[in-house]
């Protein structure tokens, strides 16, 4: 009870979010409720208002809030939409928003690669499959979800646990030594500060120094220097997966698919 009183600001959005997601899931009714949408927005608002910390830079904050909000709302719409084709499109929206966040984290190459791979390849493939495999009209299994309450409850318990770790808690920061996973909670690190002295920093090679950080050059050095073997492995994986997909995919028996 004491714990609940201290952390109601964390618990409340979780409860609201779980309720909203569970209600928004398709359950056979033609329309989802307006109340659930409002409650979901409220939950997102509370989390954004209490847990996110502005950096002070207006532009970067605005972009971050924009991309984060689009990503979260898009994700909710994706998992709750009755039409899988729309789900795929909402997934594309989420992907674009995540790519924006990648840009904010100085990962331009990853952002463009993600857009190309996901939006350009994966989602299109999804849509193709959807057209091949979708039955005419709205199907029953799209209209009814399976135990949405249980799934939402479990998921939001997990989210609550994660956010509890991430939430800025003053007294914890004051009393506990800053080590390991828990120590990440309230840390604000300036961009330009070199963090090589930190004990948690992995050993990095000379190719990935701070000067090269965020550039194509740095990533290329890292991939084809430190992780060359892994890259080769990933290439093999792609080859094997494409062969496997061809083998698994059903043969066309007649002209009509």
């Amino acid at each position: 009870m004491q714990w609940l009183k201290e952390h109601w600001l964390l618990v409340l959005p979780m409860v609201l979010g779980a309720f909203a997601v569970a209600r928004l899931m398709p359950k056979g009714e033609p329309r989802s409720s307006l109340v659930a949408r409002l409650v979901g927005l409220a939950a997102v608002g509370i989390v954004g208002g209490t847990l996110l910390q502005p950096t002070g830079s207006v532009l970067s904050d605005a972009l971050f809030y924009l991309f984060a909000g689009v990503a979260v709302l898009g994700a909710v719409l994706m998992i709750t939409h009755r039409n899988p084709a729309y789900s795929a499109l909402w997934f594309a929206v989420v992907t674009l928003a995540v790519c924006g966040l990648f840009l904010l984290q100085s990962a331009p190459f990853l952002a463009s690669a993600t857009v190309i791979v996901y939006a350009g390849a994966i989602i299109v493939t999804f849509l193709f499959v959807l057209m091949l495999a979708q039955q005419a009209g709205a199907t029953n299994y799209d209209q009814r979800s399976r135990q949405p309450g249980v799934a939402a409850f479990t998921g939001f318990v997990l989210l609550g646990a994660l956010l509890f770790v991430l939430s800025p808690s003053k007294e914890q920061a004051a009393t506990r030594p800053v080590t390991g996973f828990v120590s990440l909670a309230p840390k604000v690190v300036p961009v330009d500060q070199s963090s090589d002295q930190l004990s948690t920093t992995p050993q990095s090679t000379s190719a990935t120094t701070a000067e090269n950080f965020g550039t194509m050059r740095g990533l290329g050095r890292s991939l084809f220097g430190d992780y060359l073997f892994a890259v080769e492995l990933a290439g093999t994986l792609l080859l094997v997966a494409s062969i496997g997909a061809i083998v698994i995919a059903p043969k066309r028996s007649s002209g009509k698919l």
């Binding site: 997601v21 989390v47 847990l51 996110l52 910390q53 502005p54 950096t55 002070g56 830079s57 970067s60 971050f64 984060a68 990503a71 979260v72 994700a75 909710v76 998992i79 989420v94 995540v98 966040l101 904010l104 984290q105 799934a151 998921g155 939001f156 997990l158 989210l159 994660l162 956010l163 991430l166 800025p168 990440l184 909670a185 309230p186 840390k187 604000v188 690190v189 300036p190 961009v191």
Partner: peptide, 19 residues
């Protein structure tokens, strides 16, 4: 200034919603 936890929070929300 970049706040690490902001991104972690968004990441975990996406993860949980996906789940």
């Amino acid at each position: 200034m970049i706040v690490l936890t902001n991104y972690l929070i968004v990441g975990s929300i996406l993860f949980v919603l996906g789940a």
